[in-house]
């Protein structure tokens, strides 16, 4: 805590990574924006994807270099206990920001379900909207038939929650358990055990991603459940899509941790990178439980 007087607080002198990160982020997003505008305008031959790809390369280089720096410094023992707490606060509040990001989409789901769709069907203040615009429309959830079915053709069928989603729930919950076992092993310095349980965690994580991919293929090819299938498809894909992206990021972090374990990094008492990755993984797991209940089950 702030009361401690001794120890060293590491203030790096200069760093080239932040400016590289800013240039990379700008280039990547510029390219992404150009690609999207070209796509919507129907422009075929453009160099937008090169801009995006270039920006992504800069970002990848930056992430690799910046984290290498941090890992080097950590291995050299430059970080004090106080520095460690700064990292902990940083990661904790970052995860809180992620919680709020998902909260926006969950909030959207609840609002649409409990307010927007019933109002469109004439409930509450929505009587005249209903009568004048879409008198045929009936409220339901999941919403299979939209007010404007020509622009937004509803899905023919939905994902069966007790098939792939249930398997995925079991996979992710199991991966949280295996990761915790790996963490306990790391604290006891049983490194072979750490490796086995980490590999198992990663297999479970990638299996989840594979099934999620299968589910999307099924949704698009067989069920007509697409991004443009109206609000059900919109909320379904934004929630599961961003969750999938976060699983990918979490799995990448865990993969890097595994590589570091093989390189002999981490000590029983000092392994915050590992802990941060596992916090993130558990967070992603908790979001999935919310998804399974509110998107698939009820």
């Amino acid at each position: 805590m702030a009361q401690e007087g001794e120890g060293t607080y590491y203030v790096p002198a200069q760093s080239k990574w932040p400016i590289i990160a800013s240039i990379g982020l700008f280039t990547m997003l510029l390219g992404a924006g150009m690609m999207m505008n070209d796509m919507s305008a129907g422009v075929k031959d453009s160099f937008a994807h090169y801009v995006f790809f270039g920006g992504s390369l800069i970002m990848a280089y930056m992430l690799f270099g910046w984290f290498s720096n941090v890992i080097e410094e950590s291995q050299k023992g430059l970080y004090s206990a106080q520095m460690d707490r700064s990292f902990r606060w940083g990661m904790g509040w970052f995860i809180f920001s992620e919680v709020m990001f998902f909260a926006a989409f969950f909030g959207t789901l609840f609002y649409v379900r409990y307010f927007a769709v019933p109002w469109l069907a004439g409930e509450g203040d929505g009587a005249s909207t209903h009568e004048h615009l879409w008198p045929e429309f009936e409220a339901a959830w999941p919403l299979m038939s939209n007010p404007d079915n020509e622009t937004f053709p509803g899905a023919k069928a939905l994902i069966d929650p007790f098939h792939l989603p249930l398997i995925n729930t079991l996979l992710l919950v199991a991966s949280s358990i295996t990761l915790t076992i790996a963490h306990h092993a790391l604290r006891k310095a049983e490194r072979t055990k750490v490796k086995i349980w980490m590999i198992l965690t990663l297999i479970l994580g990638f299996a989840f991603l594979y099934f999620q991919f299968e589910e999307y293929a099924e949704a698009y090819n067989e069920l007509g459940l697409t991004l443009s299938a109206g609000i059900y498809g919109s909320t379904f894909f934004i929630l599961t899509g961003f969750h999938g992206a976060h699983v990918t990021l979490g799995a990448t972090m865990l993969l890097i941790m595994l590589v570091r374990i093989y390189k002999g990094h981490f000590e029983p008492e000092n392994h915050f990178a590992f802990e941060a990755s596992s916090w993130y993984w558990h967070f992603v797991d908790v979001v999935w439980i919310g998804l399974f209940i509110f998107v698939y089950l009820i």
């Binding site: 919507s40 959207t108 939209n146 109206g230």
Partner: peptide, 19 residues
Amino acid sequence: DIHFGTSFFNAGGGGDPVL
């Protein structure tokens, strides 16, 4: 909504601009 055909803020797809 602009580029990928979703209907978060489009009542035609069951969304809501008020959202």
